[in-house]
Structure formats: structure tokens, C-alpha cells
């Protein structure tokens, strides 16, 4: 899984590409920990390059969502591929997480 960081204003953006599974989910945990500096509260996680997510990936995203919520921050996921969207729907994640179609829409919402 490729992980890239960027920042738009105060919003931290993490883009994921490839597979988020039992092996790579810890890499995402680490990447989020690095991005979540004390001043960071709003996050966008771009998933348009993510082809696969398993329960290990879901668990990581849930953990991140809890951390963001604990800091009264906001988290938006964007660009779900068909495979990932289906996993989100089957696990009920689409009802508990904020999802936007594009990064731009997410940034507009967080502005």
C-alpha cells in the first residue's frame, strides 16, 4: 500500500493506494499517528486508489475515527472504489463515517 501525506490549510490529507489488509493496516496506523500532530484536528483520507480493504483495514479506520472524534475533529473519507464501497456497506461503515465523492468536496465541507 502506498501512503502519501499532504496538507490543505489545516486539513491533513492521507491518500491510500493499493491494498489495506492485515499486513498493511499497521502502516496506515503509523502514518496517521505521524499526521496527527497536536494542532491537527481535521482529516481527509483519500481512498480512490484503494482496491482492497479487509476487516483489518476497517478496524484501523475505525480506530482513527475514534481518535479524531476524541479531539473534537472531523474525518472525511473520499473516492471509494466499488470494492471498498461494497465492504463499507456490508459492514455498516457507510452509516457511521462521513464519506464524500471527491477530495475537493471534502475540503469544501471542512473549510
Amino acid at each position: 500500500m502506498d501512503i502519501t501525506h499532504s496538507q490543505h490549510g489545516s486539513v491533513r490529507i492521507i491518500a491510500l493506494k493499493g491494498r489495506m489488509d492485515a499486513v498493511t493496516a499497521p502502516l496506515f496506523d503509523k502514518a496517521f499517528a505521524e499526521a496527527a500532530t497536536p494542532d491537527a484536528s481535521d482529516f481527509v483520507i483519500q481512498l480512490d486508489g484503494l482496491e482492497y480493504i479487509s476487516s483489518a483495514g476497517l478496524r484501523s479506520i475505525l480506530m482513527v475515527a475514534k481518535q479524531v472524534k476524541a479531539k473534537n475533529g472531523r474525518l472525511i473519507l473520499t473516492g471509494l472504489t466499488d470494492e471498498v464501497r461494497e465492504v463499507f456497506h456490508l459492514s455498516g461503515f457507510h452509516t457511521i463515517l462521513r464519506i464524500c465523492d471527491t477530495k475537493e468536496a471534502a475540503l469544501a465541507e471542512l473549510a
Binding site: S54, S55, L58, R59, V87, L90, S91, G92
Partner: peptide, 13 residues
């Protein structure tokens, strides 16, 4: 298991 995520996916797929 820590949660039912894995079992939920298994039952659906």
C-alpha cells in the same frame, strides 16, 4: 475476536 467485522464480511461474501 475483538469485533464482528471479520464474521460480517465472511457471512456476506
Amino acid at each position: 475476536l475483538p469485533d464482528d467485522l471479520a464474521l460480517t464480511l465472511i457471512r456476506n461474501y
